[in-house]
């Protein structure tokens, strides 16, 4: 994607987000029924300032980008991740989200062994024995350290509680 186009899409998205916060989120999720003598006493005062600033600055950035006659050129893949690598990173994000929900159901130990095994395999560790052993050892080590040294009790999961 062209860098200018990406910047415009980002700015428009941020601007829409800021307007939603200003005209929906703040009136809905801050109690504005009480009237205040001074605007600065209102709980919405500071969130509104911050959001207006976001909207204003994004508009300014959008204006600068839109008025720029020359395109910024293509996005440089060498500096960041290539398209394939970005999908790989997103797959890891998804795995971490799944891990979170899995932890709630089957508990810390089982879900951690599973996520570690998946990530090791996904990162190119192909020997099943190495994947299994490393996942189990890391999970056990961390679990025992936090349980006995830090006195942290990890979730057991709704299935085992």
């Amino acid at each position: 994607m062209d860098d200018t186009r990406r910047e415009i899409i980002t700015d428009v998205s941020v601007l829409i987000g800021a307007l939603i916060v200003l005209f929906y989120v703040i009136p809905t999720y801050i109690d504005l029924e009480q009237e205040y003598d001074l605007a600065s006493l209102s709980p919405a005062f500071f969130p509104k300032i911050a959001t207006w600033l976001i909207a204003g600055l994004t508009s300014l950035h959008l204006l600068i980008i839109a008025r720029r006659k020359e395109s910024l050129g293509p996005v440089e893949g060498e500096e960041w991740l290539s398209s394939g690598e970005q999908w790989k990173a997103l797959a890891c994000c998804l795995a971490i989200i799944v891990y979170f929900f899995l932890m709630k159901v089957i508990g810390f130990i089982a879900s951690t062994i599973l996520i570690l095994a998946f990530l090791f395999w996904f990162q190119g560790v192909k020997k099943p024995m190495k994947v299994a052993l490393t996942s189990i050892m890391v999970t056990a080590g961390l679990y025992l350290f936090f349980l006995y040294v830090m006195k942290v009790h990890f979730p057991k999961g709704v299935l085992f509680e």
Binding site: Y29, I30, D31, P43, L53
Partner: peptide, 22 residues
């Protein structure tokens, strides 16, 4: 500014009203 906005989630420090806690 996004950081400023995120920090307003929770109780208002002066009026102790709930803010943006959904």
């Amino acid at each position: 500014c996004f950081g400023l906005l995120l920090a307003t989630v929770g109780l208002d420090p002066i009026m102790t009203t709930r803010r943006l806690s959904f």
